[in-house]
C-alpha cells in the first residue's frame, strides 16, 4: 500500500493524544484498529496529515458492566473481545448477536467497536446496535468529558460530531430498566461483505410487557437509522402479533434504502420488515418458553 505521506504519532496517554489532536487542527485521524481507515488511506480516499495511534495508551481495552448494569466498552476493545465474551449473551444479547457478524475474523481481531461507531459508515453494524440500545459515546477534550447519544453522534455518512480536539474514550450502554432481550440480523452476500440490510432490535421487559424498545437499521440510508417510531409501537404491550406487524411496517417505512448492486430499494425495505418480524417473533417464542 502506498498512501500519501503522513506524520505518525503514538502517544502514551489520553492527554497527549488530545494535545496531538489539538495540534492537528482537524487534519489528524485517530488509529485504533485501522480496519476502515487503513484501507481508505491505501485507496487514497483518506489522506490525513497525521495518524495518532492510540494503541500504546493503557487502560482502554476494557468491556463490562458496572454494578448498576451500565455497560462500558473502551476505545481499544476489539470486536473479537466481545465475540468471545462469555457473559455478553446474558448482559447484552443484541451485542452478542452482532459481534460474530462484524466483518470477517481478520477484521474482528483488530477492529474496535468505538472506532466503528466513530467511522460512521452507514453500512457499519455497531452504530445501529448501539443506537437500538440507547447507547452513547463518551468524548474527552481539553476541557473534560461529555457524553453524546449515538443517535446524535452520527451526523451523516462518515461524519460524527466529535470536535477536532476530542477523543472518543468509550461507548456506554445505560443500565436496563427491565430484562434485556434482543438480536441482530444481517443479510450479506458473503462473510466480510457490508450488510445489504442489517437490523438491530433491543428490548427490555418488565414481566411480559415491553418496557423499553429500540430498533437500529444498517445500510438502508445515508446514515445509521434509528427507527424510533417502530420501536415505540412495541412499548407498553406484550409482544403480540399485531404489534410486531406494525413495528415491522414502521421500520420499513423509516428505512431510506437506495437501489444498487446489492438489491433494489423495495427489496431492502422488505428485508427490513422481514428481519424485524423474525427477531420479534423469535423473542416472543423465547419469552413464551420461559413463561
Amino acid at each position: 500500500m502506498y498512501p500519501p505521506r503522513f506524520k505518525y504519532e503514538a502517544p502514551d496517554t489520553v492527554e497527549q493524544a488530545i494535545e496531538l489532536l489539538r495540534q492537528g487542527q482537524g487534519e489528524a485521524k485517530v488509529l485504533a484498529g485501522g480496519q476502515s481507515l487503513v484501507p481508505m488511506m491505501k485507496l487514497r480516499f483518506a489522506a490525513p496529515e497525521m495518524l495518532i495511534d492510540i494503541n500504546n495508551i493503557p487502560g482502554l481495552a476494557y468491556h463490562g458492566a458496572d454494578p448498576d448494569g451500565t455497560y462500558r466498552i473502551g476505545a481499544l476493545c476489539r470486536h473479537v473481545d466481545l465475540e468471545k465474551a462469555e457473559d455478553l449473551a446474558e448482559q447484552q444479547p443484541t451485542m452478542a448477536a452482532a459481534a460474530p457478524l462484524i466483518a470477517d475474523p481478520i477484521v474482528r481481531t483488530r477492529g474496535t467497536l468505538v472506532g466503528s461507531v466513530c467511522h460512521a459508515d452507514p453500512q457499519g453494524d455497531w452504530a445501529s446496535v448501539m443506537s437500538s440500545l440507547g447507547g452513547s459515546i463518551v468524548a474527552q477534550g481539553p476541557n473534560g468529558r461529555r457524553s453524546i447519544l449515538v443517535a446524535d453522534f452520527v451526523a451523516g455518512p462518515f461524519q460524527n460530531v466529535l470536535r477536532p480536539d476530542e477523543l472518543a474514550i468509550e461507548a456506554v450502554v445505560p443500565a436496563p430498566v427491565g430484562t434485556r432481550a434482543g438480536s441482530y440480523l444481517k443479510l450479506e452476500r458473503r462473510v466480510g461483505d457490508y450488510a445489504t440490510v442489517g437490523v438491530a432490535v433491543s428490548l427490555e421487559f418488565s414481566g411480559n410487557e415491553v418496557a423499553r424498545a429500540g430498533i437500529g437499521l444498517t445500510s438502508v440510508g445515508a446514515s445509521t437509522i434509528n427507527a424510533g417510531e417502530a420501536a415505540q409501537e412495541l412499548v407498553g404491550d406484550d409482544l403480540n402479533a399485531g404489534a410486531i406487524e406494525r413495528a415491522a411496517d414502521l421500520a420499513a417505512q423509516a428505512s431510506r434504502p437506495r437501489t444498487d448492486h446489492r438489491g433494489s430499494e423495495a427489496y431492502k425495505r422488505h428485508i427490513v420488515a422481514t428481519f424485524v418480524t423474525r427477531i420479534l417473533s423469535n423473542l416472543r417464542l423465547t419469552i413464551q418458553e420461559v413463561a
Binding site: L43, D104, R189, R190, V191, G192, D193, Y194, H261
Partner: peptide, 28 residues
C-alpha cells in the same frame, strides 16, 4: 452466487476491489 463485474451507465466499473468483487471464503 455472488460474483460479477458490472458497469453503470457511465461505464464506471462496479467490482473494482474485493469489497465489491467477492471471492468466497471457507465460511460460505
Amino acid at each position: 452466487s455472488m460474483q460479477m463485474i458490472t458497469f453503470d451507465e457511465q461505464g464506471n466499473c462496479v467490482g473494482s476491489n474485493y469489497m465489491d468483487y467477492l471471492l468466497p471464503t471457507a465460511w460460505e
